[in-house]
C-alpha cells in the first residue's frame, strides 16, 4: 500500500518535470524569452488581479462580518463590560478604517503604476513633510486610544468595593472549585501540604474557614452585587476566563491573584435575550494546562438576591460538611 502511494508520487513528480521542460522549451521557441523579465502584458494582468483580489478580500471581510456577528459574545453581563465593549468598538472602528484606507491606496498604487516600457519612475526619495504627517497622525490617534484605554483599565482594575462578596476560584487539572467566604465573607487559610481526599483545597484549622462554602460544577452570584474573585492554582498555571463578563485572570501556583466585577444580567434574563433556554454563563480555562485543558469548566449562575439567599442556605458550610463526612484522614490533616 505504502509502496503504491510512493510509486504514484514518484511518477507524478516525474511527469510534472517532463511537462515542465516541454513547456519551457516551447516558450523559448515561441520567442517567449525577451529582455524583459516580466512583459508589459504579464504586468498588466497581475495589476488587474491585484484589484480583483483586494476587492474580493473586502467582500470576504464584509461577508464574514455579517455572517458571524451574531455568533460573537452577546452583550456584556458585567458593570464594567459595556465600558470595555465601547472601547473595543471605538478601537475596532479606527483600525477597520485604517485597514480599508491603506489597502485602497495600496491597491490603487499597485494598479496604476504598473510597468510600461515607455515610462520612467519618478525619482522621489524622501519628503520630510510627508514623513512628519505619518509620524504625527498615528501618534495623535494612538495617544487618544492610549488615554482612553488606560482610563478604562484603571476603572476595571481598581474597582475594589468594600461590600464585595468574596469567592475563591481554585483550579487544578482539570476542574474548578468555588469557595465562598461564608457569613464573615472571609476565606479560611489553606496549606497545600494538607490536601487529601475530602480536603481538596487544603483547608487548615482556622475559625474564619468554618463557615466557608465549597461548591463544584457551578457557582452562583448576585445581579448588582460586586464579586471579588480570588484565584489560586494547585498544580500548573490556569486562567479563569469568564468571557460574558469580560473578565479574565491567571491562576498561578504559589500566589493569589484577584479580579472584581459586578454582574448585571441574570442567567434567566440572558436566556430570554438570547432566546435560548439552555444558555449558561461559563468559566473556562484559558491557559494551556494539559490534555483536558479544552474541557475544564464550571457554570456560572447569576440570580437575584432572594434566589441567591435560598441557594446559599441550602449549601453545607465547611464545618457541616466535615461533620457529615469526617474521614479520619481529614480530621488528622487539618490539625
Amino acid at each position: 500500500m505504502t509502496l503504491v502511494v510512493l510509486a504514484v508520487i514518484v511518477l507524478f513528480v516525474l511527469a510534472a518535470v517532463k511537462v515542465m521542460s516541454i513547456y519551457e522549451l516551447s516558450a523559448e521557441l515561441r520567442g517567449g524569452r525577451n529582455d524583459d523579465v516580466i512583459t508589459e502584458k504579464e504586468g498588466k494582468n497581475q495589476a488587474f488581479y491585484w484589484v480583483l483580489f483586494i476587492a474580493g478580500l473586502f467582500a470576504f471581510f464584509i461577508w464574514t462580518f455579517f455572517e458571524y456577528k451574531d455568533k460573537l459574545l452577546p452583550e456584556a453581563a458585567s458593570a464594567h463590560g459595556p465600558e470595555i465593549d465601547l472601547l473595543f468598538n471605538v478601537t475596532m472602528a479606527t483600525i477597520v478604517f485604517v485597514f480599508f484606507l491603506t489597502h485602497i491606496i495600496l491597491v490603487y498604487q499597485a494598479y496604476k503604476n504598473v510597468y510600461r516600457k515607455d515610462r520612467k519612475a519618478v525619482y522621489f526619495a524622501h519628503s520630510n513633510k510627508l514623513e512628519m504627517i505619518w509620524t504625527i497622525i498615528p501618534a495623535i490617534v494612538l495617544t487618544g486610544l492610549i488615554a482612553y484605554g488606560l482610563n478604562v483599565w484603571n476603572d476595571v482594575m481598581y474597582s475594589g468595593s468594600k461590600d464585595a462578596m468574596v469567592i475563591e476560584l481554585y483550579s487544578k487539572q482539570f476542574d474548578w472549585t468555588a469557595r465562598y467566604g461564608g457569613k464573615d465573607n472571609t476565606l479560611g487559610k489553606t496549606d497545600f501540604r494538607k490536601i487529601v481526599a475530602g480536603n481538596d483545597l487544603g483547608m487548615i484549622e482556622d475559625s474564619k474557614g468554618n463557615d466557608d462554602i465549597i461548591t463544584k460544577a457551578e457557582f452562583h452570584i448576585v445581579k448588582g452585587k460586586p464579586v471579588s474573585f480570588k484565584f489560586r492554582s494547585r498544580d500548573v498555571i490556569h486562567s479563569a476566563y469568564m468571557p460574558h463578563f469580560r473578565a479574565q485572570m491567571n491562576c498561578v501556583p504559589g500566589m493569589e491573584t484577584s479580579f472584581e466585577f459586578t454582574p448585571t444580567i441574570t442567567t434567566a434574563e440572558m436566556r430570554t435575550k438570547l432566546k435560548n433556554k439552555n444558555f449558561n454563563y461559563v468559566l473556562l480555562c484559558n491557559k494551556i494546562c494539559g490534555a483536558s485543558h479544552f474541557n475544564m469548566q464550571m457554570d456560572i449562575i447569576v440570580e437575584t438576591q432572594e434566589e441567591f439567599n435560598k441557594y446559599i442556605a441550602e449549601q453545607k458550610n465547611w464545618m457541616q460538611q466535615q461533620a457529615a463526612a469526617t474521614p479520619a484522614a481529614v480530621t488528622a490533616s487539618i490539625k
Binding site: I38, G43, I105, L106, Q109, A110, N113, V122, L130
Partner: peptide, 19 residues
C-alpha cells in the same frame, strides 16, 4: 506605521515590475 506608509509611497509614480 511609518514603514507601511513608506512602502506604499515607494509604489507611488513607480514603474512596477511584477516579478
Amino acid at each position: 506605521a511609518v514603514k507601511a506608509f513608506n512602502y506604499i509611497t515607494t509604489l507611488w509614480k513607480g514603474n512596477i515590475v511584477y516579478t
